[in-house]
Amino acid sequence: MKKTLTVNLGGTVFNIDDDAYRLLDNYLSNLKMHFRKEAGADEIVDDIERRISELFAEKLSAGSQVITIADVEEVIARMGKPEDMEAEGESASADSGSTSTGGGYGAGAWNSNTAYGTTRRRLYRNPDDKMLGGVISGMAVYLGWDVTLLRLLLLVILICGVGTLDRKSTRLNSS
């Protein structure tokens, strides 16, 4: 049996378990600390909070009734850590054209497991660069490959695979 809390997040009320609440509260506090020196820091954090609220609403529309710690970890991975947001912002504004080595691009390929202090990679669909749902794009981010290269490679595999399936089925039918 777990203790649940009722929270208002981005103007929407959610039931959230105690562990998930602590993780989410810690994440929002880190965001506030990160953006405290920026102009419009409150608006930035409010926008992020509203986006988190939208993602939680999607979870609840799928049939859950309570936001769990797994849901919060998934949303944090999708939104990115404050350090990743800083790295992306600096690389976008830098004139030298250098890229950030942070793992927080689009698909949320990195997930920080705060309970154990380890970092592990996760595979997600990439909603920012999707052709057929963003699956191939998410795999490209996970592997660190160019998305076009991976799409072409999988197309070649698909074409070659269909040819071998036809030959195997004819051999089975003839015997």
Results as ranks from 00 to 15, higher is better:
Met1His: 11
Lys2Met: 02
Thr4Arg: 15
Thr4Cys: 09
Thr6Phe: 06
Thr6Trp: 00
Thr6Glu: 12
Asn8Ile: 01
Gly10Ile: 02
Gly10Glu: 02
Gly11Tyr: 01
Gly11Val: 01
Thr12Asn: 03
Val13Asp: 04
Phe14Ser: 00
Asn15Thr: 15
Asn15Tyr: 14
Asn15Leu: 14
Ile16Trp: 06
Ala20Cys: 04
Tyr21Pro: 00
Tyr21Gly: 00
Arg22Asp: 09
Leu23Ile: 10
Tyr27Asp: 03
Asn30Thr: 10
Asn30Lys: 13
Leu31Pro: 00
Leu31Thr: 05
Lys32Gly: 06
Phe35Glu: 15
Arg36His: 14
Ala39Gln: 15
Ala41His: 05
Ala41Asp: 09
Ile44Asp: 05
Ile44Thr: 15
Val45Phe: 01
Asp46Leu: 05
Glu49Ser: 10
Glu49Trp: 04
Ile52Pro: 00
Ser53Asn: 00
Leu55Met: 12
Ser61Ile: 09
Ser61Asp: 14
Ala62Ile: 07
Ala62Pro: 02
Gly63Arg: 05
Ile67Gly: 02
Asp71Ser: 01
Asp71Ala: 02
Glu73His: 11
Glu74Tyr: 05
Ala77Ile: 02
Met79Asp: 04
Gly80Ser: 14
Glu83Pro: 02
Met85Ser: 04
Met85Tyr: 01
Ala87Glu: 08
Glu88Thr: 07
Glu88Asp: 13
Glu88Val: 12
Gly89Ala: 09
Glu90Asn: 07
Ser91Gly: 05
Asp95Arg: 10
Asp95Met: 13
Ser96Trp: 11
Thr99Ala: 14
Ser100Tyr: 00
Thr101Asn: 11
Thr101Ile: 13
Thr101Leu: 09
Gly102Ser: 12
Gly103Asp: 14
Gly103Cys: 10
Tyr105His: 15
Tyr105Phe: 11
Tyr105Ser: 11
Gly106Tyr: 14
Ala107Arg: 09
Ala107Met: 05
Ala107Gln: 04
Ala109Val: 15
Asn113Ala: 07
Asn113Gln: 07
Thr114His: 08
Gly117Cys: 04
Thr119Val: 14
Arg122Thr: 03
Tyr124Met: 14
Asn126His: 05
Pro127Glu: 15
Lys130His: 10
Lys130Ala: 15
Met131Gln: 14
Met131Tyr: 12
Leu132Cys: 05
Gly133Met: 04
Val135Ile: 09
Ala140Cys: 01
Val141Phe: 03
Leu143Val: 04
Leu143Met: 11
Gly144Tyr: 01
Asp146Phe: 03
Val147Ser: 07
Thr148Tyr: 10
Leu150Thr: 00
Leu152Trp: 06
Leu153Ser: 12
Val156Arg: 11
Ile157Glu: 12
Leu158Met: 12
Ile159Asp: 06
Thr164Glu: 13
Leu165Met: 07
Arg171Glu: 12
Arg171Gly: 11
Asn173Pro: 02
Ser175Phe: 09
Ser175Met: 07
